[in-house]
């Protein structure tokens, strides 16, 4: 299987391990990730205002390139996923917006075909659940994470707004827990797993985000977790700094269970 693979800026810099292990695991699962040419930053956060167009163009370009390649667009970072999926939703459902974007992009020159949200956007976890299958993930496990108690942290970006993201039951999701089970570990369910870590507010009011993050990690630890698992670099940053729980990317855990972690490490540039 070939998929269009959107790594995003942070996975090239501060979150290399999220990307590195994702690719290693895909290799083992016979999925070939193909990066769109000249992809640009997704914008980091989706701006919900209807009149905001420029900041959404890079997402549309990535979506359009996946459409032309005839592949689903797979994202790993929760933030990229949220921005691209929401932008795609606007292209499908907001005719006025889609029209303006297409007119703008037509100015790029060359032969132009309009884009209207045709690309299927998948988060890496959705790729595993819906296309690869967790049973296949389980079959690829050579070093099951037996005995580990892992708390899945969804945060907000993967789940909300549910009308658009349609990722899982936003109040009682199971995709990450099923993933953890496939790796041989025990999922720890706790109420704060779908509450916000504080996000970008850390840049403006670090006290506020510290409070949010601590509430999440404390709830996870009190529920008996030894590790918190996430798909988002910003969540990992916020949670790691507050509460003392080890926070690990889901791809890293998967690589560990696949027996790929010891052999290869992220190379420092």
């Amino acid at each position: 299987m070939k998929v269009s693979y959107f790594p995003g800026c942070t996975l090239r810099t501060k979150a290399k391990e999220l990307d590195f292990y994702a690719r290693k695991c895909l290799e083992k699962l016979d999925v070939e990730p193909i990066e769109p040419d000249n992809w640009q930053c997704c914008g980091g956060v989706f701006v919900s205002a209807k009149d905001e167009i420029a900041s959404k163009l890079s997402s549309v370009r990535a979506l359009k390139s996946a459409k032309e390649a005839g592949m689903p667009l797979v994202t790993v970072c929760s933030a990229c996923h949220n921005v691209i999926k929401q932008t795609n939703y606007c292209m499908q459902n907001d005719a006025d917006f889609a029209n303006k974007v297409n007119l703008y992009m037509a100015q790029d020159g060359g032969e132009f075909t309009p884009y209207n949200g045709e690309t299927e956007v998948l988060h890496f976890l959705e790729l595993l659940r819906d296309k690869v299958g967790f049973d296949k993930v389980k079959a690829a496990v050579v070093k099951p994470l037996t005995g580990r108690k892992i708390a899945a942290y969804y945060g907000c970006l993967l789940l909300r707004p549910n009308k658009v993201m349609a990722f899982d039951n936003p109040e009682n999701p199971t995709i990450m827990e099923d993933f953890i089970r496939a790796l041989g570990a025990e999922p720890v369910v706790y109420a704060m797993r779908n509450e916000c870590c504080g996000g970008y507010v850390v840049t403006d009011d670090p006290e506020s985000s510290a409070k949010k993050s601590a509430a999440v990690t404390e709830n996870a630890m009190n529920a008996g977790a030894d590790t918190v698992m996430t798909a988002c670099p910003l969540c990992k940053y916020n949670l790691s700094k507050n509460g003392g729980a080890p926070v690990v990317y889901f791809t890293e855990l998967m690589a560990e269970a696949f027996g790929l972690k010891e052999e290869q490490h992220v190379t420092e540039e």
């Binding site: 039951n169 109040e171 009682n172 369910v189 706790y190 109420a191």
Partner: peptide, 11 residues
């Protein structure tokens, strides 16, 4: 109450 788990009925 499946879709209202902000109230932690399932938990």
């Amino acid at each position: 109450m499946e879709k209202f788990d902000e109230f932690a009925y399932a938990q």
